[in-house]
């Protein structure tokens, strides 16, 4: 296995593993938000805003993984 191959495996692992947690997390956030909207449809506007903020915080982790993956994949490290 060449160094380049190892590099690509590292990049794939970085984004692949980084996507697991945020995937579950975004599901939980949307689950909570939808239940809340179901119980209290009048608050849908506020809840949607808050949900997006929550999703973005969660998603940021995946994005960090993606950036690291790019850094590894393009050989910046």
């Amino acid at each position: 296995m060449t160094d380049h191959g190892l590099q690509l495996i590292g990049a794939a692992l970085a984004i692949g593993l980084a996507a697991i947690g945020p995937g579950i997390g975004i599901g939980l956030v949307a689950n909570g938000a939808l239940q809340a909207i179901g119980r209290n449809p009048e608050a849908a506007g506020t809840l949607t805003t808050t949900m997006f903020i929550g999703i973005v915080f969660t998603e940021a982790l995946a994005i960090f993984g993606l950036v690291i993956s790019f850094l590894i994949g393009f050989g910046i490290f």
């Binding site: 973005v56 940021a60 994005i63 960090f64 993606l66 950036v67 790019f70």
Partner: peptide, 16 residues
Amino acid sequence: IAFTFRLFGNIFAGEV
């Protein structure tokens, strides 16, 4: 760092 990489990562990843 979070602000920077959140925005940069999302947009750059989108382009790629």
